[in-house]
């Protein structure tokens, strides 16, 4: 689907891509990296819209430097930013975009109706887009990327700005784009946790360099972390600290630092989950201390944190082979249980 060879993109002040070599096959591939890692730059090059400084890239077997138009006819693109005019309806807009992709008028209308239905827009598609929720706008953006039945779609941060439910819906939709529609997907995110559940393969880049490229099953064993938030009580004025001490005493592994800049970050404990027993341990520990449990959920990782965890796990793996069983948390994480492990063989 996508092959790059020593691909670099240098701007006057920054190197956005640094000798990146990738080989991405059919399926859903996640492209993960922090902000500024070069994800959007790579997509622009793949669409043939921005010349690479050096190296080569091919999409669907076509050279991006010479066959941009042919690539764009077969590829869909969903930008990370807002891109929709507020004063037209989703139907009108997507029909127009279908024609811009070369579909004859009748086909453009039919495909628009189908595609909007597939992304879950029904009656509202006749109303002006200006009145839509963020989730609905994201669906319209996805629809315009799919309307011409491309072979591959490039989705740039499609979950950005969505609430947790909206995220899960969007991720489910992205999964279906491949499983039900047969369209391969390259989807970017700065959160690894959400992509590992959706993708067959994940590529991690940082500073324009390839950090890691592997099938998702490799990641899942090392990235399960529970975020735990507790209340304070009279006996334990600092509930978070009390729980941390109790859990450490009980032998649980806690991550030293939580993500910076999150609201209430200081009150969130990150506990490495080794299995269902971790959930029970946390629940019992909190109950024994007589403290209220605000929430406990499987964590979406910030990319930097993943590597701390992954490094730690790699070190651990050298001593003892980790249990292959994937984390199957109890009812706490029911909403995350949609994922089924074991299918993450390298799709390339």
């Amino acid at each position: 689907m996508i092959a790059t060879e020593s691909l670099s993109k240098r701007f006057p002040r920054v190197t956005a891509l640094d000798r990146l070599s990738l080989d991405i096959g059919p399926g859903v591939t996640g492209l993960v990296g922090a902000n500024g890692a070069g994800k959007s730059t790579l997509i622009k090059i793949l669409l043939g819209l921005s010349p690479a400084t050096e190296g080569t890239a091919a999409v669907l077997g076509l050279d991006v430097a010479t066959s941009g138009g042919a690539i764009r006819e077969q590829v869909g693109y969903m930008p990370e930013h807002d891109a929709l005019p507020p004063d037209v309806s989703a139907t009108e807009f997507v029909v127009h975009m279908a024609r811009m992709s070369g579909l004859p008028p009748t086909a453009a209308r039919e495909r628009t109706a189908d595609t909007l239905r597939h992304v879950g827009l029904y009656e509202e598609r006749y109303r002006p887009i200006g009145g839509y929720s963020t989730g609905m706008k994201q669906r319209v953006k996805l629809a315009q990327a799919l309307v011409h039945d491309p072979k591959l779609v490039l989705l740039d941060e499609p979950t950005n700005g969505l609430d947790p439910v909206g995220r899960d819906e969007m991720l489910g939709l992205i999964r279906r784009v491949f499983t039900d529609f047969g369209i391969s997907v390259l989807v970017t995110s700065h959160l690894l946790g959400e992509l590992e559940r959706t993708c067959d393969h994940v590529v991690v880049i940082d500073g324009g360099k390839l950090l890691r490229s592997s099938s998702t099953s490799d990641f899942t064993q090392t990235t399960a972390t529970l975020a735990v938030e507790v209340t304070d009580s009279d006996t334990h004025p600092d509930g978070t600290r009390a729980v941390r001490e109790a859990l450490t005493a009980a032998g649980a592994k806690l991550h030293a630092r939580v993500e910076d800049g999150l609201p209430g970050a200081g009150h969130i404990l990150l506990v490495e989950a080794t299995g269902e027993e971790t959930y029970d341990l946390v629940r019992d520990t909190v109950a024994d201390l007589g403290i209220g449990l605000v929430r406990m959920e499987q964590r979406r990782h910030h990319i930097a944190e993943v590597f701390r965890t992954a490094d730690a796990a790699d070190a651990a793996a050298a001593e003892a082979a980790p249990e292959p069983a994937a984390v199957q948390p109890a009812q706490h994480a029911a909403q995350h249980a949609v994922q089924q492990k074991g299918g993450g063989r390298d799709a390339g």
Binding site: P26, S101, T179, A347
Partner: peptide
């Protein structure tokens, strides 16, 4: 291929009206 990774939405009975995805083989006028 990762067919077994299908999320529940794919088989959700509430989507009974979903007649399935049709691919487009018609002309692309360029």
């Amino acid at each position: 291929m990762p067919a077994e990774l299908t999320t529940p939405q794919g088989t959700d009975p509430t989507r009974i009206h979903n007649i399935g995805y049709r691919s487009y083989d018609g002309p692309r006028l360029g």
